[in-house]
Design a protein around this nucleic acid. Structure first.
Lengths: 244, 244
DNA sequence: TCCTGGAGGAATGTGCACATTAATTTACCA
DNA sequence: TGGTAAATTAATGTGCACATTCCTCCAGGA
């Protein structure tokens, strides 16, 4: 689809920026960059094969979005979120997401019900197939889906940011441990409560679900081993297969 | 010390950046920049007497924070939020702030009660003195105060962003109209409910308060008159008396 | 008179070179 | 031998110049 209907054929600028941004983000999500790692601009420029200014711009954006931390005249680092900060983020998520499920109980259309059922079904299939990577992605998208069903773009964007930040510090090298999470079961229960229009039960289930997640994450502590940037970005390129 | 007024800045880098950022933000808050205004980098560089790169950095930061909108290869503009977007932002605020007052009813310490009473008292004094500028600031700070009393930094920062974005599009040239707002009275009622530990009433009062605000704002429409940048930044300098 | 196409100019975006700052190593002295 | 200070090196930050893109204005034709 979309062979090349773009009116501006000579514009790979913003695409390159996004590619660099995505490359660094992917490295973090894949657990290649552990907390405390320093992201040197020349090294990234060399590894990703782009100019240093592009790297700088991507780093600044990532810093602003909370993925990285910058110290003036010192450099940019992968943040080491404390347990307290993770709890705070989950606390905000609890406020928003209990309100979300409550609202969905009030005004749940048939199309929304369809999408919720489909998502639960997908998660169930992923569990059966023991596809942990897919299950990891689906578990996050479930919370995004709930926000999107409210039809509020601001809410969706806000929750998306909270979700990435709350799962970042542990999702890094933990995907392989994801098999024991009670996520899919909890999600199915929440959907059942929403479809039954039981607002109180849905809110309580969401509260317990998030409390369980934060407790589980708090118990896990990332190893403090530094990693060389060249190895961290092995197989990750900014000039990835051209895709809009 | 750096007491060199020469056009060759030596060491106040981050301070200069913040000054430029604050200057643009102040111009917006003062209503000098109406929605749709284009912020040209050369003009800002000349008016604020700083290099264009500094202006670019400040603009990028303001864009990331939602104060401005950027169109690639086109420029940076003061956003014209639609009524629907304002309603969405207030919807998210409702979710968060009803949860906030509910929580404050649960765990309200004496120190918190003290600060709440003091704030209400300040607002009352501002009303008596007919100090609309001060009242405008206090009205916003009330909601920030509630978030801060929860002791959650993430929550405070998030709500601060939502508040600036929700009040931006109208606060610009409307401070002089602020006399008829029911804000102070609503705030006092909310505080009374919190101190009485009446969670349901506090949440309901907050809900009605925010609904009233969004209705009041939706009825008002900013005039679409463009303004010259030189006039907008009259009296606003980036080399302000150094103060963090 | 209105529409269209092209040329001129201004604004945005980017690479590059240099200044400044922090970290590391080395040399010197107690 | 250990500690301190200076020097070297590498990384960050910034100003500058140029390339690219977009807007505007004007001329020509239907």
């Amino acid at each position: 689809m979309a062979s090349k209907p773009r009116p501006r054929p000579r514009k790979g600028d913003v695409a390159v920026d996004k590619a660099v941004y995505d490359a660094i983000r992917r490295a973090m999500l894949m657990g290649r960059l552990l907390p405390g790692t320093k992201l040197r601009e020349p090294a990234l420029s060399r590894v990703l094969n782009v100019s240093r200014e592009r790297v700088r711009k991507a780093l600044h954006r990532l810093v602003h979005e909370g993925w990285l931390e910058a110290v003036p005249n010192r450099g940019t680092f992968v943040p080491a979120l404390t347990i307290a900060e993770v709890r705070e983020i989950y606390d905000v998520r609890t406020m928003l997401e209990t309100a979300i499920v409550t609202r969905l109980c009030m005004e749940c259309r048939t199309a929304s019900a369809q999408r919720l059922r489909a998502h639960v079904s997908e998660e169930r299939q992923a569990v059966k197939a023991d596809d942990r990577g897919r299950l990891f992605g689906l578990s996050g998208e479930f919370h995004i889906l709930l926000a999107e069903l409210c039809g509020n773009d601001q809410l969706s964007r806000l929750l998306r940011g909270l979700l990435t930040r709350s799962t970042m510090h542990f999702s890094l090298s933990a995907p392989e441990r994801f098999h024991n999470c009670a996520g899919p079961h909890d999600h199915a229960e929440i959907v059942k409560a929403i479809l039954a229009r039981d607002a109180k039960k849905a809110a309580k289930l969401m509260l317990d679900h998030l409390l369980g997640l934060v407790e589980w994450q708090s118990a896990w502590r990332p190893p403090p081993n530094p990693v060389a940037l060249e190895e961290a970005f092995r197989g990750i390129s900014a000039n990835r297969p051209t895709r809009g």
